[in-house]
Computed example of a mutant assay.
Amino acid sequence: MFAAEHERILPMDTLHPYLQSSLGGLLIGLASWWLLAALGRVTGISGIAAALLPGRQAPTRGDRAWRVAYLAGLVLGGALFTLWWQPPATVLRPLPLLVLAGGLVGFGTVLGSGCTSGHGVCGLGRRSLRSLVATATFMGTGFATVGLMRWLA
């Protein structure tokens, strides 16, 4: 059922932004728990994707299958929810800026031995001290950046 064909079942514009974020967080937590319970794997997206890159240790066929399925589910799930709920439009950025930003995120992921989802969702859930330090660093840097930007504005 798509928005163009039928009235939306749960329109995003009727949900408070905190509720939207909470629902998203619950889905991320559920997916993380499910992967850990079902396959004993941690939902660090950077690690899942990196194992599929050429030159990395080739995963077994079964290992490759769940990784591809998980990443495809992220992309397709996001696309389906976009069609269904029609989230608000965002400002598009120039492609070179997006490529630069993606590269910086990738560099930070390698430097931090994981991404925010891996450390914040999975690592904290497993009570990892390394993930606690990483998450505190991510959050502290974010708070400082927002504070600095507001102070400069």
Rank of each mutant, 00 (worst) to 15 (best):
G29A: 04
R41P: 01
Y18D: 01
T43Y: 13
I28N: 00
G29Q: 04
L30A: 14
V42Y: 08
L27H: 06
R41K: 13
G24W: 08
S22E: 11
G44W: 06
L35C: 04
G40T: 02
I28R: 02
V42E: 12
A37M: 07
W33F: 11
L23Q: 03
Y18E: 03
M12V: 14
R41E: 13
L23I: 15
L30D: 02
S32L: 00
I28D: 06
A37L: 09
W34R: 01
A31E: 02
H16I: 14
L27Q: 03
L23H: 08
L39Y: 12
G44K: 03
L23G: 10
Q20P: 00
H16A: 15
S21W: 14
D13E: 14
G29V: 02
D13M: 01
V42W: 09
M12N: 04
I28W: 04
P17Y: 08
L30V: 14
G24P: 08
G29K: 06
G40Q: 07
L36R: 14
L27S: 10
G25K: 07
G29M: 04
S32Y: 11
G44S: 09
P17G: 10
L26R: 03
S32E: 01
L30Q: 03
L36D: 12
V42C: 06
L23T: 05
T14S: 11
G24N: 04
L36W: 15
T43M: 15
W33P: 00
L23K: 05
L26Q: 07
W34M: 05
L19K: 04
W33Y: 09
G25T: 10
W34D: 00
R41N: 01
L15I: 13
T14D: 04
L30N: 00
L23C: 12
L19R: 08
T14K: 07
Y18K: 06
V42I: 08
G40N: 05
Y18S: 05
L19F: 09
L30C: 09
A38W: 13
L39C: 07
G25L: 14
L30P: 02
S32P: 01
A37E: 14
R41A: 06
W33R: 02
L27P: 00
W34A: 12
G29L: 02
L36M: 09
